[in-house]
Design a protein around this nucleic acid. Sequence first.
DNA 1: CTGAAAGCGCTAACAA
DNA 2: TTGTTAGCGCTTTCAG
Lengths: 338, 338
Amino acid sequence: MAIWKSQAPTLLDVARLADVSLKTASRVLNNARVNEDKVIRVKAAMERLGYRPNELARGLKAQRSAAIGMIVPNLSDPFTANAVNAVQEVARANGFVVILASSGGDVDVERSEIVSLVGRQIDGLIVAPADSRKDSFSDLLPNGVHAVTFDQQLRNADLDSVTVTNRRGTREATAHLLGHGLKRIVAIGARPHLYTCRERVAGYRAAMKAAGIEPRVCLVDHEGMLTPAWLKDQVFDLQQADAILSLNWVCTILSLRGLRELGKTAGRDVPMLSFDDFDLADMLTPALSVVKQPAEMLGREAATLLFERLKGGRVEPRTLVLPTSLILRESCGCRSLS
Amino acid sequence: MAIWKSQAPTLLDVARLADVSLKTASRVLNNARVNEDKVIRVKAAMERLGYRPNELARGLKAQRSAAIGMIVPNLSDPFTANAVNAVQEVARANGFVVILASSGGDVDVERSEIVSLVGRQIDGLIVAPADSRKDSFSDLLPNGVHAVTFDQQLRNADLDSVTVTNRRGTREATAHLLGHGLKRIVAIGARPHLYTCRERVAGYRAAMKAAGIEPRVCLVDHEGMLTPAWLKDQVFDLQQADAILSLNWVCTILSLRGLRELGKTAGRDVPMLSFDDFDLADMLTPALSVVKQPAEMLGREAATLLFERLKGGRVEPRTLVLPTSLILRESCGCRSLS
DNA sequence: CTGAAAGCGCTAACAA
DNA sequence: TTGTTAGCGCTTTCAG
């Protein structure tokens, strides 16, 4: 039996049917102290009418919406998808819903999405920032609406954040490659304005420097520029790569494809190691060695941090750094280590 | 400069500052006819106060929320992620936000998420149902809240839906495999209660029947049961597979892994074709042949259908069927067709 | 074209 | 414990 939205039963209807006052019905709804039998009457009435509280009205009054916003640059990235999944789960467990928006990596879109979310009275926000050079959005947040960033970390912002050991990840990866006797390892990345990119490059440089070898970094502003031609020119002709360290998932995919176009097989003709694991990386030939990020955990921790804030917890911003792990398969030069 | 949530400027503040009545300010907000100079004064006031309309209040009054709900079984599936992405874009273009929930393929979770969404006064719902044997949720929708299903199609439901040519997809794929001289083609699928599974199996059977060959279908209730041991027992020992047709992405991944555990290489030792394309399917060795679904388009069309309904369009339910395409790479038995 | 006033569904003073 | 009564921020009759 359908409920008519235009005439959905209200709490007043429930109260009338149960023959109690509106307030009493409200108290029952909120599990406040109410006479035993009235509780029963009210609950019966709710049942009979198929009553559903109007969260909008509830939120309007209470100045909260039981909704959090989440903004990511790109849902197609498996890392992101997994993080979103985890956030969603934690939110649900806390009785919250998540309003998802994607920025496409564009700060302006990101800002406009945030404005839209704030207008909907979200209680909190989780964002994987599109630009981490500066705090690009906390000016949009009303006092009382907390935000936590994940993946990226903002400069000059006092927000909670969850990141991974980007630097250590690439440092170890690079060191491993060096251990295979590789010298002209080229780091390929995109969007140099991102924290993750900077950190990963820094880790790479550190490892190269420690080995007394000149670092070779090839970055593009935007992933779209990472074409086979660019690979050939920059990475091979110019830098004479004898190994590749790809700094994120999209770069990995594009590099893999690009290499093939150039008639090379990643991992065989040119050893390769990639930041970010993904389904089937282990099924490539040779299997791709990666630095794995705990995507679900990132999402879970970000959400947990946010909900602790919402519950009125601590004041000083916290920064959580989760460990990456080096997964050695074959493409780095190891043979059937798995 | 931060805005205080507790004391965020209201329309009344704007009106006072602009020295007009509340109603006039409201009219400006809604682009109704208002005196030119008053419009300017009001807009200036809004600007100065950093006024943001409270969508909750707006929605409460107007009985709508400018939000749609979306429920999917599994965000990690790239097909789903892409569809969500597209829905999000269309929603944004229409000034709507999307509240995302995932059911994990569980009907009860699905129902409870819908109840939650309805309580938030969503204006519409897009869902990839967790079970398509019957209409499992439209009883939860208040009159006036429309739903459109995508991917799956519900039995006995008069909802708008967007699906793909599942049957034709597997029929063509099977025919192609048969064309390579393969006979003991085994279709591997999961969740037989799903429309997509049924349809894909039907397409497979049709092609086998047309060729006068006994069909060999191996289904598991849940993807978790698709283990290497199961593959060995059911698919190889029992059915003596000489080719595999995997019916969805998860099955593909699990089959690929399972085959490797059994010491076989998909596409080389046993030809394989998979429903659902994904990043890097083309980078496997041999490259995986697939039936590709237009994921983004599915999402876009589902959202479009929904918004047309919201704008009060037609009454009779519509069913959109989008074309799949057979992408022949190598694993089906073709060699370097790409 | 504009203003006053009444609510949307709910919660929270404040009394009783 | 309960009921009465204001609102939350906005839209919208209904007069002016």
